[in-house]
Every structure is written in structure tokens, then in C-alpha cells.
Computed example of a mutant assay.
Amino acid sequence: MGFETIDFEIADGVATLTLNRPAVMNALNRQMRAEITKALSTLPSGVRCVVLTGAGRGFCSGQDLTDGSAAANLEATLRDEYEPMLRAVTQCEVPVIAAVNGVAAGAGANLALAADVVIATQSASFIQAFTRIGLIPDAGGTWIIPRSIGLARAMGMMLFAEPVTADQAQEWGMIWQSVPDTEFQNAVKARAAALAKGPTQAYRAIREALAASSANDLDAQLQLEARLQGQAGRSADFIEGVTAFLQKRPAAFTGR
């Protein structure tokens, strides 16, 4: 696709999107935000899982503070550039794994936390660094974080701007898994491969149901479950799953 600030590779149904500005800890500038949005919004057919990670020693240090165009109008930057990027993550057609290979700070932390599954190295950390420069957390952080770790921890994390280790983040429920650094790459590959071979339509429905659950009452959620389950029950993957179960063999899902 001809990207400059990210690397985008596809193999075995897994698209790996690597933030690639290691000299500045993969800080987000306007071009990178646009390229992330484009890559996730125009996935080639055959992609059934996305891995979002960073080049070098960190995942993402957040907003590039040397990008004067963003600082000139923060509200417009958030609405016009960050919101499309975050929606490209949360509304992606396939599951997104954030493979956090080091520090994830500010908007970079919230970009990672917008993914469906977050796997981090034990040496990684998450920091809401906004108050250090007189700002509030953005890029969805004030929505995502209190829903995963509760108001008290979210408030402390944001007011004090102190790093949360990967182990803490796992214990608090902010991420799925903290993995020893030596096992990190293999763990991410294994999880991505499993999702790429799974029932893609069912994954999409799970993500839709969970996204709606915080705003729905029980009756609305039961109705949504019934509708989504009806769709899943008409899929080729459901037929294959039941057939494989009866034949006592692994299912060969096609994502249809």
C-alpha cells in the first residue's frame, strides 16, 4: 500500500501493522494516524486477524509533541484524526491484537487499549502521561480505562500519571496477558494464528455484543444476543463446527 510511517505485512491470514518511527518511540503524527486508519479500513480479503505492534524498544510514546499542526487545534485533531483511527481499530472487521512490546504512553496507551486483546511484555508499561503537560487523557482513554479497571484506579492512574506495569495491568483487568519478554513473540504469534483460523463471523458478533453491553439493559442485550446468534447459526462455520464436533475432529473454519 506504500506506507511510510508503518509497516504492513500479511502472512497466513494475519496482518501485522507495525508502528515504525522507532527514533521517536513511534510517536503519533498526522501521517501515522492517517496510515493506521487507511490500513485497518481497507484490509485485503483473506485477513482474519490484525496484530498491532511497535518497532524498536517501545510500542508508542503517544502524540508527537513536535507536530505543531496538532497542537494548534487539539479539538480538531482529535475529531478529524484520532477518532477515525480509533474507530478503525474498534470497528475493524476482524479481531485486533495489540502486541505491546514496550512503553505505551498517552494516546499510544489508549490506541493499544482500544484493541480487542492486549498482550504485553512484562517489561512494558502503560502510562496516562497527559497531566504532565497540562492535558486530560484522550483517544478514548476516559471511556476505555474506567470500564476495565474501575473508577478509583482509573482516576489515580490519570491524576498521578504514574506508570502501570504490564503485570499490574493484567492483575487489574486492563489487559489480557503479561508475558515474559523471552516468550512474547511466540505468544503473540500463537494467539494471532488461533484467531486467524477461527470462526471470524462469530468473533465479529462477540465484539458487537460486548461493545453494546454497557449501554443496554438486560432485555435489550438478550434481544441483541438472539439476533446475533441467529446470524451465527446460519453461517458455514456453525455447520462445520457441529460437524467437526460430531466427527471428533478439529474444526476447519473458513470465516464464512
Rank of each mutant, 00 (worst) to 15 (best):
A120Q: 03
L65A: 07
L113K: 09
A71R: 11
V50I: 13
A27L: 06
G108D: 01
L19Q: 08
S41L: 01
A23G: 03
G56E: 12
L19P: 09
A107G: 11
R87Y: 13
T77L: 13
A39Q: 01
R57K: 15
A72Q: 13
R57D: 14
D116G: 01
G68F: 10
A23F: 02
A72M: 11
L52D: 09
I119G: 02
V103P: 09
E93I: 06
V96H: 03
Q91A: 13
T90N: 06
M25A: 15
D67Q: 13
M32R: 03
R30S: 07
G58T: 10
S123M: 04
L78C: 09
R21Y: 02
L78R: 12
L19D: 03
P22M: 03
D80T: 13
A34L: 13
G56F: 10
T37K: 05
S123V: 00
V96Y: 06
A104I: 02
N26M: 07
S45C: 05
M32V: 01
E35M: 03
G58I: 02
V94T: 05
A23R: 15
G102Q: 04
G106V: 04
K38P: 00
A88Q: 02
V96D: 06
G68I: 00
L74T: 13
I97D: 03
T77E: 14
A114V: 05
T37Q: 12
Y82R: 00
A107W: 08
V118C: 15
E75Y: 14
M25Q: 13
P22L: 07
F59D: 00
V94Y: 01
T77Q: 11
K38Q: 11
L78K: 08
E93M: 08
G54N: 09
G68A: 04
G68H: 11
G54F: 04
A23T: 11
P95T: 04
R21Q: 14
S123P: 01
V117G: 00
